[in-house]
Design a protein around this nucleic acid. Structure first.
Ligand SMILES: [Mn+2]
Ligand SMILES: [Mn+2]
Ligand SMILES: [Zn+2]
Ligand SMILES: [Zn+2]
Lengths: 136, 136
DNA sequence: CGTCGATACGCAACACGGTTGCGAAATAGG
DNA sequence: CCTATTTCGCAACCGTGTTGCGTATCGACG
């Protein structure tokens, strides 16, 4: 299913912005910041900063993408192919800041919480060095 | 060990700012934002915004505190009594944004990563409703 | 294929958490 | 006390993300 089909499937208008942004996310090998998406679009498509933010937000609302908070206080966006929520772990490189999805890991929800606390979702973030930053 | 002793033990100058901030963190029942720390100091001590940021950073450097990134892109600070790193999970309330340390949980570091990836630390963040926000 | 209402876009201004540079004040050692 | 060094306060700045509003575009329908 390509970007346009996914957008139509979500009952959204197909616009160049949405098509190009979602395609970019689908092609990406890792989670991308707003700026990284913009760079991958340019110079073919000069998209306004705000439009890009709103497009990314829309994709998240429609569950076509999910976003992860990094240590540097910037969101990273990642396509959710199956429309599935982000029930996988993320690897967070402490040197270059890149965030990779680790699909293989699905943390179990069985854990001991204080009374009256109600868990909705578990986010497992592994910090370390990515392949590009690992000296070994 | 009180705040001043911990500061001296880290070979740092004992100043009112450091004493009061660290005491505040030690007394806190959960991770506090910069603003929450400021509120708990005032009006007895009127600390400059920047001084508070630098004091918190210093405490983190000295491993007297650790900080957690929340969904709202603001750091939350938490005293590290034993000088130990934050090898415990955090509960992140999706309604009020408060972050609580869950000391009981120590995620195992044995997991499958892509080749050449090197894990340094695991951060387990549980999202849900805290006791104050839980309707049940 | 043209019309038109709902939706999306672009621009400008703003909000907010956090940082930087630098001169003035406070700390701790002698 | 006196002084070297660290820390503080102020002002200005930065980057990410948001809001308001008028204009352009999409696509449904005739
Ligand atoms: Mn992901
Ligand atoms: Mn903690
Ligand atoms: Zn890296
Ligand atoms: Zn809550």
């Amino acid at each position: 299913m390509n970007a346009d089909q996914l957008i139509r499937h979500a009952h959204g208008r197909v616009t160049p912005a949405r098509t190009r942004v979602l395609t970019t996310l689908l092609d990406a090998e890792r989670a991308l910041t707003h700026l990284e998406v913009a760079e991958r679009l340019a110079p073919a498509v000069a998209l306004d900063r705000v439009t890009l933010y709103r497009t990314l937000d829309w994709l998240v609302e429609q569950a076509l993408a999910h976003r992860v908070a990094g240590e540097d206080r910037t969101w990273r966006f990642n396509a959710s192919p199956g429309g599935a929520p982000a029930h996988h772990a993320h690897f967070n490189c402490t040197r270059c800041g890149q965030i990779f999805c680790i699909e293989a890991l699905t943390p179990a929800l069985a854990l001991q919480l204080p009374p009256d606390f109600h868990a909705q979702q578990i986010e497992l973030s592994i910090k370390g060095l990515c392949a590009g930053c690992n000296p070994a």
